[in-house]
Design a protein around this nucleic acid. Structure first.
Lengths: 247, 247
DNA sequence: ATAGACTGTTCACCATATGGACAGTTTAGG
DNA sequence: CCTAAACTGTCCATATGGTGAACAGTCTAT
């Protein structure tokens, strides 16, 4: 995957523990498809570094990750967005998320969910496709290297999103789910730092969720920009590695 | 270190980025002492997994760590303790922390600091010695395998801590710093889940910080136990891997 | 007491991480 | 504009160090 085998396996194990809770050695072997000695050796190594812990013979993510989570890219963005996402959730009655672009993917960095009933769930840290879903297309629409994705998302589609200032999608990333997203710009006003999204079942949002939600989602994006203040902190923002692009 | 070289190096890099903010490749090479090709290869691999990100040629911790941080061991404990630590900070005017034991170390899982002036700082995720400082001795005092540390912390000292229900230390872990800590017990009442600690300069706390602070710190510990509820969630607590011990 | 399912450990093989050396790229300065 | 310096990115022969089949120890249930 990444060219460093051991690392791929360690990440596979941590990702498994992250979703499938505390698990026994046998459970991790089953869930990852790695051989038992390998899983055992890596879990022991990860334990030395406190990236995994054990409770009664079962392995789970270790407390050192708490600290790294606090200092990860996007932290100030997340802090600024959290109350805004909560308000948007209350206004719309749907789950809300904040996404940042990461290379060819997008990562959910904050998620405030509807409490009960039918709802969309995206865990923080989830890695999603960049070219699918309204938030993905928002992140692409203002990206310098958007030409690289021309075969996945047609240029006129992105132009339309830039004109409107928001995007909607229906059953695109996941069956039965619709969403509306808007870009969060950095202080310069040209680079998109993140995308705010509200998502829920098509049954509630209909075939054109933007009609009802776009105004509120866009307002939330402006609110997050305001909370970030004019003077965007130097270190925490995220940029993409590419550059150089057509129009 | 752990028996898996690549993992040790990857952790070393992440730990460096965690404390020394965004850094260039050269900076990481300088800070870790690894060779440039190795650092470059590992950073690239970590980036594929979104464990590191880059902003303008500088590397920083990646957003996937946000998700793992949310689901790491001790999360429910931290959530329960946060408001209590904040109140204890306000009452005492000193920085407060929550520690859990992890093998032969202790890890800070939450930290609420005094806002201004001279104060002790322990970042969340920091790995500290188990046998030094009041919180470490609290974690040891009720540990089943405390006999293994008899040469570092004498038995009578631990007995005294168990009798009192709290511990104090002066210039033990770090020069100029004093602290008072109390154990947070799990639902069974016999196993220590964590240690609450208040710490600050000796100049303010004096040679016997417990005289002034022990009552409040112990009350905070009881408050956290209450917030955790009787029915301690199954997965999230932390246990130590050892067992089998004298009295 | 015995069986079964689990966790932990060993070791010979060879996949794969390593770092010196080279190449390309950006920044600084005359 | 051109050169120098300092950086990032890449290659490849070497041997370090990760691998997993097989063995050993441990716990639980009946």
């Amino acid at each position: 995957m990444s060219g460093v085998g051991v690392l791929d396996k360690a990440v596979l194990i941590l990702a498994f523990l992250s979703t499938d809770g505390p698990a026994s050695l046998a459970g991790v072997v089953e869930g990852t498809g790695l051989s038992r000695p390998t899983v055992h050796r890596l879990l022991s190594a990860l334990e030395v570094h406190h990236l995994v812990a054990r409770a009664g013979g079962r392995y789970l993510l270790g407390p050192r990750l708490l600290g790294w989570g606090h200092r990860a890219a996007g932290t100030n963005l997340v802090d600024a967005a959290r109350p805004v996402l909560a308000a948007l959730r209350d206004e719309t009655g749907e789950s809300t998320q904040l996404y940042v672009r990461e290379g060819d993917d997008r990562v959910c960095v904050e998620s405030v969910e509807r409490a009960t009933g039918l709802r969309d769930t995206v865990p923080v840290g989830a890695v999603l496709q960049l070219a699918r879903g309204s938030a993905g297309k928002v992140l692409l629409a203002w990206a310098e290297d958007r030409g690289r994705y021309a075969d996945l998302v047609a240029k006129p589609v992105l132009e339309e999103i830039r004109r409107r200032g928001w995007a909607e999608s229906v059953a695109e990333r996941e069956e039965g789910v619709a969403s509306v997203s808007a870009p969060v710009f950095d202080a310069s006003g040209s680079v998109v730092s993140a995308a705010v999204s509200a998502s829920g079942p098509i049954a509630r949002l209909g075939d054109h969720p933007g009609e009802r939600l776009s105004e509120r989602v866009v307002a939330a994006a402006r609110e997050i920009e305001r909370a970030l203040g004019g003077r965007e902190e130097p270190p925490r923002s995220i940029t993409n590695k590419e550059g150089r692009e057509d129009v």
